[in-house]
Design a protein around this nucleic acid. Structure first.
Lengths: 188, 188
DNA sequence: GTCTATACAGGGATAGAC
DNA sequence: GTCTATCCCTGTATAGAC
């Protein structure tokens, strides 16, 4: 068992700090301090800060794919799988409370920075969107599956933004309950 | 008719750039370049960059109050007034497409920056929240007026985030229609 | 692979002339 | 009120020793 390669550690730490502080506001010094490496060392592993962002997004895409796969193994019905998504707001509340949704806030920031990696970041949304659509198709909603997927995406996204702004856990929990109820009563 | 005071021009330009580029990513040079004033001149009108942000938020609060007042004059029923809010996504689409919701994106950024003015920025949300709640009370939903206000807020917030990420106007329009339909059928 | 030293640009902020 | 000049710090990035 070898120790994690420095490159992987950089990606991991950058991932966390980009989420907590934003991409633009996270400096090499911030990352270096957490890892006890020098600033100069970065440039052996990456050419620019944007390259680190690229790798962070790729890592997030991969982790998300694995999570969706896990959900499919853990839940046997489409509705149960969709609820796994809806429950993230509770599962990850400790982070969402302070930093919002990792996907939404990254895309929002990159849009304002007019950053070249925005399309890559959007693929995170697309991943969830396509997965949710597939679940709605399995539920028998072929004709409007994508619309429903976007609706669920938007709902949780809005709740994340407001719950983050107001640091309101009860609101988040209540909305998750409402989402699940809506789903239970949908297409019955 | 005197020409607008420099102080007001700074606030106005900072307001626009903070929205378009984000607070952190907007420099004194950016604002100065737009106004053809020198960087040094800022410090006659403001002590720090954070002070400019404070003034920008105050200006937004004031403009929002005026807008809500106008809506009350223009629309005679609670439902018509709530629809004014829902329609913003269409009215301001040209900006939202590129920069998202001015309230949500500011609060999201300030949360990540751990910025002292976050509570002030949140008051923008509260302004809409209280106004929407009042409309729902007038609609006869005393018991859950605040919950409904938050729901409408979250819905439009989520749509703004997704529509911004995907630059999808049709999605935004369709969701506005769905919101209005939902409202029409509510409490009938 | 990792370090130190350093270059260079850009940030916010101050001093003082006009 | 507005300017120029300047300070100091932090940011990304590079060069080269180890």
């Amino acid at each position: 068992m070898t120790k994690p390669a420095t490159r992987e550690q950089i990606i991991e730490t950058a991932d966390r700090l980009f989420y907590q502080q934003g991409f633009n506001h996270t400096s090499f010094s911030d990352i270096a301090a957490q890892l006890n490496i020098s600033r100069g060392n970065f440039y052996y592993h990456f050419q620019t800060k944007d390259d680190i962002l690229q790798s962070v997004i790729e890592a997030r895409l991969e982790k998300t794919r694995e999570m969706l796969k896990r959900w499919e193994e853990e839940a046997s019905t489409p509705k149960a799988r969709i609820k796994k998504y809806m429950q993230i707001l509770n599962t990850n509340w400790d982070k969402i409370q302070y930093y919002g949704c990792p996907v939404g806030t990254l895309c929002t920031e990159l849009a304002k920075l007019n950053h070249a990696s925005l399309p890559e970041a959007n693929r995170l949304f697309t991943l969830f969107r396509n997965w949710l659509r597939e679940q709605f198709i399995q539920l028998g909603c072929e004709e409007n599956a994508d619309e429903l997927a976007m609706q669920v995406l938007a709902w949780s996204q809005g709740v994340a933004t407001l719950a983050n702004a107001f640091a309101d856990k009860k609101f988040a929990q209540q909305e998750v309950r409402k989402m699940c109820n809506w789903l239970d009563n949908y297409n019955k």
